[in-house]
Amino acid sequence: MERDAHARANTEQLRLLLEDLELTTAQARPEYTAPMHPAALTVAEIADQLARIYAADQSLSDDVPTPEERTALADYLGCHEEIRPEAWAAWVVDLNPADWDAAEYWLDFEFVEPCPEARPPSAQPRPRH
């Protein structure tokens, strides 16, 4: 009986550790393995993330990003403006040409935020979906 209690305590401790490391999300969504770090992504991976987030914003997918994922990518693209055209060029290849204008508007005016360092202290981030 003592072993069962010990095993349950170990299982609970492991669950809490995985939760702290945000690995429980990986169990629910196998394609998601860790918090997004945009600087570690290739341009093609950034384009894939943009497509995923855009589809969720347009109610075309239920693969909704976390607020942290959105903010990380939006801030990264706002701070690294040279990456945005490259990511757009990689993303546009998979878009229907009829959607180009709406997707580009979304990217430039609804998704990407100015670099946090460039924001005035009084500026509040736009609410996220």
Rank of each mutant, 00 (worst) to 15 (best):
Q124W: 01
E113H: 13
A118G: 06
T42E: 02
L18G: 08
W88C: 00
L23Y: 13
E12V: 14
A7H: 14
W100G: 09
C79G: 14
L60Q: 10
D20W: 03
N10L: 14
V64F: 05
A74S: 14
L14A: 14
D99I: 08
A56T: 02
Q49V: 03
L21P: 06
R3G: 07
R3L: 12
L41G: 08
M36K: 03
T24V: 10
H129N: 02
D48P: 00
A103D: 04
A72V: 08
A9H: 12
P116W: 00
P114N: 07
R52L: 09
R3T: 11
E45A: 02
A5F: 11
D62I: 06
Y76W: 13
R84T: 08
D101S: 13
V112Y: 00
D108L: 11
E45M: 04
A26F: 05
A89C: 03
D20T: 15
R70C: 10
I53M: 12
A34Q: 09
H37F: 05
D48V: 04
D4W: 13
L41H: 07
A39G: 03
H80L: 02
E12C: 11
T25V: 14
A87G: 00
H37S: 09
D75W: 02
V93Y: 04
A34E: 12
P114F: 05
T24F: 09
L73E: 01
R52E: 07
R8C: 10
L14Q: 14
T42W: 09
L23K: 12
R126V: 05
A72K: 10
E110N: 08
V93C: 08
A55N: 05
P114G: 07
T11A: 15
A7F: 13
A7K: 15
W88Q: 01
T66A: 00
Q49G: 05
E117G: 10
L60Y: 06
P35L: 13
T66E: 01
E82C: 00
Y54G: 07
T24R: 12
A34K: 10
S61P: 02
S122M: 09
T25Q: 15
Y32T: 15
R126G: 05
E81W: 05
H6V: 13
L17M: 10
I46L: 12
A5Q: 15
I53N: 03
E82I: 03
A87Q: 04
L21R: 15
